[in-house]
Design a protein around this nucleic acid. Structure first.
Lengths: 222, 222
DNA sequence: GCCACCGTAATACCCAGGTACTACGCCCTC
DNA sequence: GAGGGCGTAGTACCTGGGTATTACGGTGGC
């Protein structure tokens, strides 16, 4: 039996969670907290297996509450629920010791399996955030075959020299008109180049091409 | 419609996956490969959105196959399926560029939602592995808090919180349609936000906004 | 009580960007 | 010398992005 404490400043949201959890015969909702202070107190009193933690709350927010619950030494795990997957506080939540974070509009089954995973000591992260997490992790892995920084990124290898030249200025934000005038080309030629670049790299539009230019270090943030 | 290539040396296992995927009306199985070499060839021919990749296969294994598929530059994503969550090769798979790995005895729904997540560029990792990933990530976080909102770039200071949120995803290449659907907003609302962001920051179009997002470190090259 | 700002939303309109297709001269290779 | 890749160029067409304008409920300040 997994015991849960629900923390959210919106009563309706809490009700929704409670309904969902109570419908499972392996879960019990021990209580509901409306802000961080309450969450800390109730967590100490009730010793739930898992605290569902909203971040944005009046008074003490979810991050600080998480930090204190973890610091208390109880075995309680904290699962953070963010409204948007971009919530910058989510990362702060990780540092505070949360066992995971999910997005509030996740499917009910995802939330439930997330709670079960967390209660057994595993961690869960919303898919859209996992990507960044994974990238950061891979970046720090000792590489078996260190990449030669002078060699060209494989994603650009398919391009001709001219195309890479043009991709570079696309990455710098030039419009087709600007490219055509500064390169002394017809705009139709520029379009042909751009189309070929997109087709070869798999970028769906020039925005993705700009991002590719940054990722492959063709251009750098200034 | 998500197109999938199934790679596994066991025909019965492949059949199981195929049955599951074909039962979904948003998924199509383009083919089945029995080893790494086949997987590479079929992936190049069929250009699936996602390759389900077994690791242990006779001949060319799943890791090397993953590496080559990613290196090909196609937009194909690779989702590795391991038999045991401790499979040490799983980490090698990450380095090879896989978008995620799951354990074969995962629930059908977990596999399906994993495929959907991966197909849209997100990443997925089995909960029992996420824990390690997360620990490693937190350990490597720069000691200078990355989410220090007090030292916001002046160019972004004019923006509201919501606008910065949206600028971030613009920087990640989302289209207005994607923003509207993932944020649960009308597209007209998104357009309003975008227009205001451009007006406030002086960016002439969303391309310049992407560049601004990089320059202000709202987003990072991966 | 009023005003300003914010987030939401709709409508109508225009244009840069992107696709699809064709074409042609140049250079290199087999 | 035939073929292929490359850089150039044109035309026709369609769509997503951006502008302009208006509107409305909520919130916070004065």
């Amino acid at each position: 039996m997994t015991t849960v404490l629900i923390t959210d400043d919106q009563p309706l949201q809490r009700l929704g969670f409670r309904m969902l959890l109570e419908s499972q015969d392996d879960m019990t909702v021990l209580g509901e907290a409306g802000n961080g202070t309450e969450a800390i107190r109730m967590s100490a009193d009730l010793r739930p297996d898992v605290v569902l933690m909203d971040i944005r709350m009046p008074g003490l927010d979810g991050i600080e509450a998480t930090r204190r619950i973890i610091a208390s030494g109880d075995r309680t795990r904290v699962l953070i629920l963010t409204t948007f997957d971009l919530d910058e506080y989510a990362y702060a939540g990780l540092r505070a010791g949360a066992s995971g974070f999910l997005i509030k509009d996740a499917l009910p089954e995802e939330l439930l399996s997330g709670i079960r995973a967390v209660s057994t000591g595993d961690a869960v992260v919303a898919p859209s955030l996992t990507r960044r997490l994974l990238d950061a992790y891979v970046q720090h892995l000792p590489s078996t075959a260190p990449t030669d920084s002078t060699s060209l990124d494989p994603r650009l290898a398919v391009l001709t020299e001219r195309e890479r030249e043009i991709l570079t200025v696309i990455g710098q934000g030039w419009t087709n008109a600007e490219i055509s005038s500064r390169f002394h080309l017809a705009e139709s030629t520029v379009k042909t180049h751009v189309s070929r670049i997109l087709a070869k790299t798999g970028a769906r539009d020039r925005i993705q091409a700009v991002i590719l230019a940054y990722d492959t270090r063709l251009v750098w943030p200034s």
